[in-house]
Design a protein around this nucleic acid. Structure first.
Lengths: 339, 339
DNA sequence: CTGAATAATGACAGCGCTGTCATTTGTCAA
DNA sequence: TTGACAAATGACAGCGCTGTCATTATTCAG
């Protein structure tokens, strides 16, 4: 009958005939321990099946190996990819990720930041730049590195990695115009700050080209989905039946728009051009394949963690503290209009 | 200039003129403290902006408020919904969720269980019943409630909530047969244990009806996606061009199959019936709308947390320890064959 | 008004680790 | 061989909280 109690540092120490602190060092910085001790300690650890107690370590060292990740949505495919990137980068390290879902509410986000800070996280990743003032203040005095993700432009609290939403919308608008569409519309849901920024710039480009028509701007505060995409296109075509192209503020909407076009027997890209946003795997495989703006979601997640870890290891060591990963337009059949 | 140091229990205690332990009780079980003390303490907490240190609490009480969630994939939409359910249920409680991604590897899952156990979690949620033997052993002696999710049938380590994959496949197969399809195929990717179980039962039902043809069973170990769905249908139709219906082992594959059918100018449901699995929001809004097996993913996540919390509050209090949430077939246009 | 019960509070130790600083051991030039 | 220095190791205190048990205040039947 084994002792029920989990083995502690002291157990390992007495078994290997060294002091507890040497065991601690063997684990955390083996180079500071002589080879002889190290081998003895490692054997004892092996034999006892010892694993350090994280709570005790956190209490004594005043910091944890938790990386807090605050996203506005778990449903949105966009953040699924960010998550993948984050987990990919964290996996081989001693850090854990803890996710908070702010549901696109700045107030809930602020509350979650408070909650995270209670556990003295090693680092924090938050989406966007639009925190409340108290939240911003908390982040500034967090005592750990912070990376804001998914956007680029404004100065970050600490570090940031993302891409320009204005540039993305500009790419989309110009592409539709270059393809020869003259009565373009836009579909947008959720209306978070990044969506609004894209909407705004798309409008501007259209206005400059003299093709802006507010009847063709259709939005909803609801979460985006394929169903909402269908509804919004329906609404758009009711308000402005002669619309010849549509920029969908994300790919779910774009797929919905495509389906609605199918239902109405509208030909894509001849009768209606469609451009999405994000370039999810799906869009490439729709029929016809959907033009979309590719966003580096996975890379954003990975890079955010890399920046965090570098900064944790050596504060102020990260030179590039505000990173634009860029976007690109992937032209496919849904805007390939025969001239 | 404020003291940089975060306020502690003792600070609150001396400000409010009671002992530290009374402050602790005011926070954890206010009903054990007189109203007079409680008010004084609460005022002091407010004034100092005190928040308990989680590490210290974990060390002293030998348990945390972390709920570990182990999923095989973060990309798969299925788990996104489970996640939502979990977060939904956890949100109003004092617990946190920490996610581990096993990437469909039982060995990685075992390692992650070890990692989670180091922090003495309040509870653990793991996907499926197919853990390695050491992992099973770890779970049994975890010292916290454990819920296995997404499956039903085998006896759980502790508790389980899910649904029957055999029943789901049976529903799909019978439906296709009832719709009059006589040369049904099946598309499956990833081939995790639950997928294999569905595949197996679909085969059996087909065999019983005398319509099983192994050329129509097309699988791949790759992760499922819309693109893979297209490829698999292509392969299926190469091997057996007269196939008249297909059960896709998840909705991504089904959407891919639908797109490939469009491309080939095959009419759905006349030339090819399609039935998906999971009933993601998308399927309802495809054109034509896709028949699918609805799985209670969100509910599984929510219920798992509820069972965990009940069990944490009062061990052995949960009566129904093995819950089948059931599945249902949602018939839509993609199998609505004109007789 | 008393004694017995309960409610409210507190003292104390210790959870398992790490930071700090002191001590011992080993190495090597003079 | 000695002293100077670096490398290796250890003693000790304490991180901030909670479990346990003892003590004090309060209530109430008799």
């Amino acid at each position: 009958m084994k002792p029920k109690r989990r083995p502690t540092l002291d157990d390992v120490a007495s078994l290997s005939g060294v002091s507890a602190i040497t065991v601690s060092r063997t684990i955390r910085s083996p180079e500071k321990v002589s080879e002889r001790s190290r081998l003895k300690v490692q054997a004892a650890i092996e034999k006892l099946g010892y694993t350090p107690d994280l709570a005790a370590s956190a209490l004594a060292s005043k910091s944890t190996n938790v990386i807090g990740l605050l996203v506005p949505s778990l449903t949105n495919n966009v953040f699924a990819d960010v998550l993948r990137g984050v987990y990919d980068a964290v996996e081989t390290t001693r850090y854990f990720v803890q996710i908070g879902n702010s549901r696109y509410s700045a107030l809930k986000e602020e509350a979650l930041i408070r909650v995270f800070l209670r556990q003295k996280p090693a680092g924090l990743i938050v989406a966007g730049f639009d925190q409340t003032d108290p939240a911003l203040n908390l982040l500034e005095t967090a005592g750990c590195p912070v990376v804001q993700i998914m956007d680029f432009g404004r100065p970050p609290v600490d570090m940031a990695v993302g891409f320009r939403h204005d540039a993305a919308a500009r790419l989309a608008a110009r592409h539709l115009l270059e393809c020869g569409y003259r009565r373009p519309g836009i579909l947008a849901a959720r209306m978070d700050p990044r969506t609004q920024s894209r909407l705004q710039v798309f409008r501007e480009v259209c206005a400059e080209a003299g093709v802006l028509d507010e009847r063709r701007v259709v939005t909803t505060p609801h979460a985006s989905s394929v169903g909402v995409g269908r509804q919004l296109l329906e609404l758009l075509l009711t308000q402005a039946p002669d619309t010849d192209a549509v920029f969908c503020n994300n790919d779910d909407l774009a797929i919905g728009a495509l389906m609605e076009a199918h239902r109405r027997n509208l030909h894509v890209p001849e009768d209606l051009g469609i451009c999405g946003f994000n370039d999810l795997e799906m869009t490439r495989n729709m029929f016809p394949s959907l033009t979309s703006i590719a966003t580096p979601r996975f890379e954003v997640g990975r890079r955010a963690v890399e920046m965090l870890l570098a900064e944790i290891e050596a504060p102020d060591s990260v030179a590039e503290r505000n990173v634009d990963l860029g976007v690109s337009l992937i032209a496919r059949d849904s805007t390939r209009r025969p001239r």
